[in-house]
């Protein structure tokens, strides 16, 4: 991706149309925006909470593909900005820039895909899963959370699973729902027992690093969504660099060939002042 359309980076002020509780700590915020409506799965937006902060969030639904024409972001409370955003209600105003970055590439019709989501990481995988299903890709979804109370998107996933359009396996670390254990353990089993053309993943980096290692052993290409501190979102400020790449512009989706040369991947990230901190 070389040039970017200035129009995409212009901040639009949009009204929150609806807010949905996903679980005790996570909400999905719906809004209407033409540019987000034509986004691709895996792209992110910068959401401005006026007077508080501006944060990067992946689109968890894309207007042109949702029943009500709304796009959404899904936010877990982790700090001041996410707390403020989670506390917002329908009718309030937020700023939106984007969509930015590259996107998941779907495999061709009849292919076999494994999707591995960890916690809130499932947000960026939801539009992908829906796209895979549309394209008749045989899709297995592994979803790992700590405990039953951390589950989210279970309505959307459960519906697809009940219709037989995806194979869904849920893991919880405490065994309160689905299989007990880590999602990476489930992934190891699934990968060794079936043939897959691609593995998609989004979640904690340590989890994705493990998934990448498993896929590499089997020679299966991956597409992972990486997260770093993002400021400008247009590839110039240098806050989100991983190896020679910028998460905001070259990513956020990284393929196996790129992951192999990123020496930071799975090891360290840069904090707000640019110092290395271990993953």
């Amino acid at each position: 991706m070389s040039a970017y359309p200035t129009e995409v980076n212009r901040m639009r002020i949009v009204e929150i149309k609806a807010v949905k509780d996903e679980n005790l700590n996570v909400k999905t915020i719906f809004f209407e925006d033409d540019l987000c409506s034509s986004a691709e799965a895996g792209q992110f937006v910068m959401v401005w909470i006026p007077g508080v902060d501006e944060i990067p969030l992946t689109l968890s639904s894309i207007g042109s593909r949702s029943k009500d024409g709304l796009s959404s972001v899904t936010v877990a409370e982790v700090g001041e900005a996410t707390r403020a955003l989670r506390g917002m209600e329908a009718g309030e105003l937020i700023g939106v820039r984007g969509p930015f970055g590259n996107h998941f590439e779907t495999v061709s019709r009849g292919g076999r895909a494994l999707v591995v989501g960890g916690g809130i990481g499932m947000a960026s995988l939801m539009p992908l899963i829906e796209r895979l299903v549309e394209n008749d890709v045989e899709t297995t979804v592994l979803f790992g959370v700590k405990s039953r109370s951390n589950l989210l998107f279970m309505e959307r996933l459960g519906e697809l699973s009940a219709q037989g359009r995806i194979r869904l396996l849920v893991t919880t670390e405490d065994g309160t729902y689905g299989a007990e254990g880590l999602v990476t353990e489930a992934a190891e089993k699934v990968l060794s027992s079936g043939r897959f053309d691609v593995v998609y993943s989004c979640g904690p980096e340590a989890m994705m690093y493990k998934i990448f290692g498993l896929a590499e052993k089997l020679g299966i290409p991956v597409q992972l969504s990486l997260e770093r501190i993002i400021r400008c979102a247009i590839g110039i400020c240098g806050s989100c660099v991983v190896g020679p790449y910028r998460v905001c512009r070259d990513g956020p989706i990284f393929t196996s060939d790129r992951l192999r040369v990123i020496r930071d991947f799975g090891r360290f990230r840069r904090d707000f002042n640019g110092r290395k901190t271990p993953i």
Partner: peptide
């Protein structure tokens, strides 16, 4: 010394 910079928004498109 290390310095964190400002909170976002830090870069704005102005046409």
């Amino acid at each position: 010394k290390p310095r964190e910079g400002y909170p976002n928004p830090t870069v704005v498109e102005v046409g």
